[in-house]
Design a protein around this nucleic acid. Structure first.
Lengths: 252, 252
DNA sequence: TTTAATCATGCAATATCATGCAACTTGTTT
DNA sequence: AAACAAGTTGCATGATATTGCATGATTAAA
């Protein structure tokens, strides 16, 4: 058996079975595991497969890097996201609602944190396509372009059948009396349903979103659990939130 | 034994056995290994075989196939997609199944063509986010990373409630007798459901996908309506498809 | 945490390779 | 017939590649 024959065999197996194990290949090909490992590494160098511990997987289709576009644009949201990630425990089921801050959360998730992530935003699914430890469930339905997410009865019905340990939502507007409000009525409705299914709701937003009101109310302050904001927020507004039981974390 | 005789013998062996080893050939032909190596190198220069360490292998079409999957902009798939777009009428509801070719279709859709596009692939939704005239419906469910798409009962149930004017699918493997087959069983199942809901099914794929069989059958050739492929496809295979009622378009 | 599997690395034995060279063949010229 | 040129072959040499094993590091899983 020639080296090139072995490599062909490996690629074939990968093509048909979807994965290969170094140990199994060593037995099938009657060579040492070292040799198989060297083959796998060479094929990996040639970009013909993806090497993983114990074997190899087929190359994933290329995912466009939406991350770049966000990376330089908004360090404030990135900071909010990095704080948000701290509240996640391993093996939880979390909802990343949509919006840029939630996408930053997806990007900030540690690569070794096992999770189930639910989202209505296809960008978030793409972002998580390379996370081995994260199962992604995407809500379906009508794709609503202004918010880059799915909405409608289909998505709502899916949500009603789920439960989330934590629901993360980027803020559009948060007001002490008028509560949490959003720009689009369809989005407001589905966010309300989402919050109902969550043990804990964490909202994130810079000081500019606080004390503001947008067109459609989602829920009152009481329904929310934690606000992550920056240190430019006005103390009077924060106090008003605090009195209604909303926990607050400020980052610098 | 003349040089030309030896080389013929080598090519014959390659044809029948699928491989030759320099050492074995030297024994069989009763010449030194150096001579065999020189023969192999000459044949390799003439592009009649693929020289590898220890011997030689037949030229394979598989290799370029692996190679072109890597190209960032795959002009072959782009051409297939541009042809596919021609079959779409305004205001139709079309399904873009998933895979790179379908993504190229999404990119190739004219900006003034009103459509409803359904897909299980979040990348396609993102691609169409800026098309004003196109309504997008995204299938939900478990996000299956190897194929970058949603699968499972949720997606299947959504599909069963829909109807498509045209369903576009990138080919994994298409064989005259074994039909259309796919790599992953979950994907094969949902593709079958999808095709049932479509008035017309158009499959696309380069010549390397034809005459091949993959692990899981989707449907037989009869269930498909049109194949778009390139001009490198073997005529015998195409004829076999044609006899089963599959319309064929070849692009250059 | 502990344990077992998997891995990277260096090493030595072997196999394969490229190169130069001399011997040989073949066909042609003198 | 002898001389020659061009091509081919086998061998010697040193270079390079491949392989299995030993070692210790790293990773995955219990």
């Amino acid at each position: 058996m020639l080296l090139a024959e072995r490599q062909n065999y490996i690629l074939e197996q990968l093509n048909t079975k979807g994965r290969v194990s170094a140990t199994d290949l060593a037995n099938e090909l009657a060579v040492s595991e070292d040799t198989v490992r060297r083959d796998l590494n060479k094929l990996s160098d040639m970009k013909l497969l993806r090497r993983v511990h114990g074997g190899a997987l087929p190359l994933q289709l290329e995912v466009p890097d939406y991350a770049d576009r966000l990376e330089k644009r908004n360090p404030n949201k990135q900071k909010l996201a990095r704080e948000a990630v701290k509240y996640i425990e391993p093996n939880q089921t979390i909802m990343l609602n949509s919006g840029e801050t939630c996408r930053y959360i997806a990007m900030a998730l540690p690569r070794d944190l096992p999770l189930t992530v639910v989202s209505a935003c296809p960008l978030i699914a793409c972002e998580l396509a390379h996370h081995d430890k994260i199962d992604v469930i995407l809500l379906g339905g009508t794709f609503f372009k202004p918010a880059l997410r799915c909405l409608g009865t289909i998505a709502a019905d899916m949500i009603r059948k789920m439960r989330f340990d934590i629901c993360f939502m980027g803020l559009c507007a948060l007001h002490p009396e008028r509560g949490f409000s959003a720009k689009y009525i369809e989005e407001a409705e589905i966010m309300r349903v989402t919050i109902e299914q969550a043990d804990r709701t964490i909202v994130m937003g810079g000081h500019t979103r606080l004390g503001k009101v947008s067109s459609h109310q989602v829920v009152s302050i009481h329904e929310l659990d934690l606000l992550i904001t920056n240190d430019l927020a006005e103390q009077t507004v924060l106090d008003a939130f605090g009195k209604q039981g909303l926990e607050i974390v400020q980052i610098s």
